[in-house]
Simulated scan of single mutants.
Amino acid sequence: MTGYIIDLLNEKYEQFNAPGFIPNDPISIPHKFTVKQDIEIMGFLAATLAWGQRITIINKCNELIDLMDGAPYDFIRNHQDTDLKRFLSFKHRTFNTTDTLYFIEFFKDFYKKHTSLEEAFAGGITPLSVDTKAALENFRKVFFSLEDFPARTRKHIATPAKNSSCKRINMFLRWMVRKDNKGVDFGIWNKISPAQLVCPCDLHVERVARKLGLISRPKADWQTAIELTGNLKLIDPNDPVKYDFALFGLGVEGYM
């Protein structure tokens, strides 16, 4: 890796990891809240719905917030079955009413037993884990642990076990885990280390990373995400995923 590439990534990380990044990105959705559980719930929903145009993603997430009376955690805990009728028309691409209602059911059941969604991931990871593979696999088992889960909803929760790049969940974990003073990522979880995070490999990131020689695999899968993260660790082994900002930003700018 050349000094030019390292300097470019560091420059663009500083440029895009700033409050000005927030308003036009799905991370703006959890930033509407201060309660940890609200941040987790809407962060996870925003990450799950994060495909397509960013303005559409943000609008659909705001629709969900409105459907939950502006207080997701309170709604999750205290809604009545009759309150769920309002979600019957909610849809974003292939994410439909069935999926929405199961997400709500899962959250309601989970938060009866736990105070943080972090627990659903932390069961699969230790301080010795080199990455979040086991955490993601554990989360999927927990998420679909309710007896009546709809089979169709499984496609919305990616897993390394199927060699998915897991780009949306990796993005969500970046939001929750990374700690700095820039004001973009939240850093409210402590059982996963920033050094264990895997870089989200969306279209912008993948395209730029290939042109910079950070990816050699032919398609974006879990091993591609691991390859990219491994190369980013050569620059910063303690916080490699901070360069997600740089790669995404370069893609949006049309730099490459």
Results as ranks from 00 to 15, higher is better:
Asp69Gly: 00
His31Val: 11
Ile55Leu: 14
Lys113Ser: 13
His92Asn: 06
Thr153Glu: 07
Met1Thr: 14
Leu45Val: 08
Asp221His: 13
Ala225Glu: 01
Leu49Pro: 05
Asp66Met: 04
Pro23Tyr: 00
Ser116Gln: 04
Pro218Tyr: 09
Arg86Ser: 11
Glu119Arg: 03
Gly251Ile: 05
Asp25Pro: 06
Arg207Cys: 06
Pro237Glu: 11
Lys191Pro: 00
His204Tyr: 08
Trp189Gly: 09
Phe33Leu: 15
Lys91Phe: 00
Tyr102Gln: 12
Arg152Ile: 11
Gln53Phe: 05
Thr34Asp: 06
Asp131Val: 05
Lys32Ile: 13
Asp74Ala: 06
Leu128Ile: 04
Ile39Tyr: 01
Asn96Ser: 02
Lys112Gly: 07
Thr34Asn: 07
Asn170Tyr: 05
Ile5Trp: 01
Lys233Ile: 08
Arg217Thr: 14
Lys242Trp: 03
Ile169Trp: 03
Lys112Asp: 10
Gln196Met: 13
Pro240Met: 09
Glu147Ile: 11
Phe95Ile: 06
Arg93Ala: 05
Thr94Gly: 02
Trp222Phe: 12
Ser165Tyr: 05
Trp189Ile: 09
Lys233Gln: 13
Asp25Gly: 04
Asn78Ile: 11
Pro194Ala: 06
Arg168Tyr: 11
Phe110Gly: 06
Asp236Glu: 14
Phe75Glu: 02
Ala120Phe: 09
Asp25Gln: 09
Val208Met: 11
Ile157Arg: 11
Ala120Leu: 07
Val177Phe: 12
Pro240Cys: 07
Arg154His: 14
Tyr13Trp: 15
Ala122Gly: 10
Ala161Glu: 14
Ala120Val: 03
Gly254Ser: 03
Glu253Phe: 07
Lys133Ser: 13
Tyr102Leu: 13
Leu49Asn: 01
Leu45Arg: 05
Thr100Tyr: 12
Thr56Asp: 15
Val252Thr: 03
Tyr111Gln: 08
Leu84Ser: 05
Glu11Leu: 02
Phe103Leu: 06
Arg210Leu: 11
Asn170Arg: 03
Asp236Val: 03
Asp239Ile: 08
Ile192Lys: 00
Arg54Asn: 13
Leu228Ile: 04
Ala220Ser: 15
Lys133Met: 02
His92Leu: 10
Ile215Asp: 04
Leu234Met: 14
Thr229Glu: 15
Ser28Glu: 06
Phe16Asn: 09
His204Ala: 13
Phe21Val: 12
Leu101Cys: 02
Trp189Pro: 10
Cys199Trp: 04
Tyr73Arg: 05
Gln196Pro: 03
Lys167Gly: 06
Ile188Thr: 08
Gly249Gln: 05
Tyr255Ile: 12
Lys219Ser: 14
Pro160Tyr: 07
Ile41Pro: 07
His79Glu: 09
Leu247Ser: 04
Leu214Asp: 00
Gly70Cys: 08
